[in-house]
Design a protein around this nucleic acid. Structure first.
Length: 579
DNA sequence: GCCGTTTTCGGCCCGACTGTTTTCAGTCG
């Protein structure tokens, strides 16, 4: 079993133990162990061979033994036995709001509930309301949760969540009682998907704000309403939380609710190591609870980090992945901003499956103030997308050359192609035609189910083609819709570096591929990227903003991103790429 | 189950809200 699969098993053990009513700290130990494996950058094989498993923070002797058993045999007796002792139906009951391990255990032990169906039956029969610790409201809430569980448990694309969140934040800021307001949570951290929305507001008079928040249009349900916190469920199924704190606590609350959980745990541990307790309300003496010395002046996150001798950690880096160690020793790289972009390279026109003409795309790029735009329509194997054959490619090269010569648009147009990587790793167009293009993006659009080693070799062969400039959407994933295909990312990254090939950040909000989790390490090894919107219309060019957010999340600064480079430098780069 | 200038036991991040209870457990983030 590989690292990822083992981490999944450990995580599931945690859930199963939770359902058995085990010690919550033991549950967390398994979850921590799973996470430690997921974020392990070394090869698991080597760590095991060198007997260093239990040196990983969060992995002790017990977990190390289980990891080795899973790694060597693909099975774990402890896990099999545990799984057999918990009805499968209990796992999915955790998705129902208000039900956690303890309540599910009671329902199972007292009423024999072993599935969502049987849970619904006992609720309707009035048996749940009679249980100690439950009541009529609990039963109603469970029934509602069952009815809506698909909508409630669904995550949302960052792009869509952002569209919902923006007007709410604007509305909050316009209220006279609100001194400051921000969004927090995974939206602020630029995660590719968002579970719910978090808003933080500063005010001394929370009541009218809470009323406004819970009475907005599109509110399907108010699930909590208090002085400092309210929760609503929107018609889309998306949940939104609002916290209101006095202005003095705003920085602490904003930091706290921005998270991540892992980042917060580490920050609190850092505070504790200095005899201080950190919460959303401030910093206090761990012993007597009095406010920490000189902490009353902390009115921004910058000041909070400074107080703990850390440089400012940008929100998107707060994932508990080593950012605190870096902040201890100095500053972060100068993260890329949307205004650093001077163009982009993976765009379609109506020659293949885009909806706008070449000229409309050129005009749109110019309106964005860009210096250049690369056109990369599909190649002929993408028949469904009206891909271009050799003849049409030659024609388009000519069209682009002529349009450039008219000087009609200030943005220089590059002629490229999004060339299909065929099943065996060869490219879909003749070498002769590929050689005539300014640049070539290579992508996979078919045969997604090849085994990992075959898929990896296929992509690497395409990378090694002398005309290849960059690799498009590395894993083919569609967020929340289609899994990535199996591929050894590390090997592909190494091959790209060895061949001077760029790996794009596909900025389409459904893709955001290659994943941000790989970029910090890959860029440190020398990999370059291009933030590409994969635009199929002029409107789609704005997707680059989603790509910039992911690049920031991957710790990238403009030097690693070729479409932040000036025209001359980019021209030279893609020209020199041709071998 | 993990971890250790409180080191092999006894902690483990912290607080709000709900629903049930009548002082608090469970859930959630």
């Amino acid at each position: 079993m590989n690292k990822k699969e083992i981490a999944e098993v450990l995580g599931e053990i945690g859930t199963l133990l939770e359902l058995k009513g085990e010690n919550p700290f033991k549950v967390r130990a398994y979850q921590n162990g799973a996470r430690a494996l997921e974020t392990l950058t070394e090869k698991l094989e080597e760590v095991i061979a060198e007997g260093r498993l239990n040196q990983i923070k969060g992995v002790g002797d017990a977990l190390a033994k289980k990891i080795i058993e899973l790694y060597e045999t693909g099975q774990l007796a402890f896990y099999e036995k545990l799984k057999a002792s918990v009805p499968e139906g209990l796992m999915e009951m955790l998705d129902i709001p208000g039900l956690g391990g303890k309540k599910i255990k009671v329902l199972h032990d007292k009423l024999g509930v072993d599935s969502i169906e049987s849970l619904e039956q006992v609720c309707r029969a009035g048996k749940v309301a009679e249980l100690a610790g439950f009541g009529t409201k609990s039963a109603e809430k469970i029934l509602k949760g069952i009815k809506n569980r698909e909508a409630y448990s669904k995550r949302h694309l960052w792009w869509n969540a952002h569209e919902v969140a923006e007007p709410i934040l604007d509305g909050l800021r316009k209220l006279p009682e609100v001194a400051r307001a921000e969004h927090a949570g995974s939206l602020r951290r630029n995660r590719e998907t968002v579970g719910d929305l978090d808003f933080i507001a500063a005010s001394d008079t929370p009541e009218p704000i809470m009323n406004w928040f819970t009475e907005q249009r599109d509110v399907a349900e108010v699930t909590a309403k208090g002085e400092t916190k309210s929760s609503i469920r929107l018609d889309s199924g998306l949940q939104a939380d609002l916290r209101i704190v006095p202005l003095k606590q705003f920085a602490f609350a904003l930091h706290h609710f921005t998270g991540s959980k892992e980042h917060n745990v580490q920050m609190r541990q850092r505070a504790l190591s200095r005899g201080l307790s950190l919460s959303e309300w401030g910093l206090s003496d761990e012993q007597d609870g009095s406010p920490a010395k000189n902490s009353e002046g902390i009115d921004s996150e910058e000041a909070l980090f400074r107080y703990l001798d850390l440089s400012f950690i940008p929100p998107e880096l707060r994932e508990g992945l080593g950012e605190i160690e870096v902040a201890e020793n100095g500053d972060f790289p100068d993260l890329v901003k949307t205004e650093n972009l001077r163009g982009c390279f993976h765009n379609h026109t109506n020659a293949s499956d885009g909806i706008n003409t070449l000229e409309e795309m050129a005009q749109a790029a110019q309106s964005l103030g860009w210096e250049y735009l690369g056109l990369a329509d599909h190649s002929k194997a993408s028949f469904q997308a009206n891909g271009l054959n050799e003849e049409r490619v030659i024609q388009q090269i000519d069209d682009i050359r002529k349009l450039n010569e008219t000087g009609k648009y200030t943005a220089k147009l590059f002629s490229g192609i999004e060339c299909d990587i065929l099943t065996d790793g060869s490219l879909d167009l003749s070498d002769d035609v590929l050689g005539k293009l300014d640049y070539v993006v290579v992508s996979i659009h078919a045969s997604f189910t090849q085994p990992k080693d075959k898929m990896t070799a296929r992509i690497i062969r395409a990378i090694e083609h002398p005309s290849t400039t960059m690799l498009g959407h590395l894993t083919g994933r569609l967020l929340l819709a289609r899994e990535a295909y199996e591929v050894d990312v590390e090997k592909v990254v190494d091959a790209a570096i060895a061949n001077d090939v760029v790996i794009e950040i596909n900025a389409n909000p459904h893709r955001l591929d290659m994943d941000w989790r790989h970029w910090r390490k890959a860029a440190a090894k020398g990999l370059l990227t291009s933030i590409n919107p994969d635009a199929h219309s002029t409107d789609h060019l704005e997707f680059v903003d989603a790509g910039v957010r992911i690049a920031r999340k991957g710790w990238l600064s403009p030097e690693s991103i070729i479409n932040t480079w000036p025209l001359k430098k980019v021209e030279k780069f893609i020209k020199n790429r041709k071998r």
